[in-house]
Amino acid sequence: MSQLMLTYSLLVAQVLLGLAIGCGALRIFLGPRAQDRVLGFDTLSVNAMLLLLTVGIRTGEALYFEAALAMALFGFVGTVALAKFLLRGEVIE
């Protein structure tokens, strides 16, 4: 019984996190400005990291944890790099 509940809640959690990723992706598409897109990217990477953790629980593989850790790190580096680009890149030449 409780196992069934866990199976279903894993499924629901994955769907919820997938929707959250969709929100981030939608913000990347909608914009309206570059900083909104970067914010969407940041949210998307964090949500994808959480989804990886959830998949890790579902499969019982410890490997997904390492993938999530790498995802968190790359998301941070990517966001900071994009923000720095906005600061220096295009508005004032």
Binding site: S2, S9, L10, V12, L16, A20, C23, R27, L39, T43
Partner: peptide, 27 residues
């Protein structure tokens, strides 16, 4: 998993996913 651990995991998972979704909806 013993039942108590399964329930605890499920509750934590659902809460975390729901909070994350609410945050992303705010976006």
């Amino acid at each position: 998993l013993p039942p108590w651990a399964a329930v605890l995991t499920a509750v934590f998972l659902l809460t975390g996913a729901a909070v994350t979704l609410i945050g992303s909806l705010g976006l």
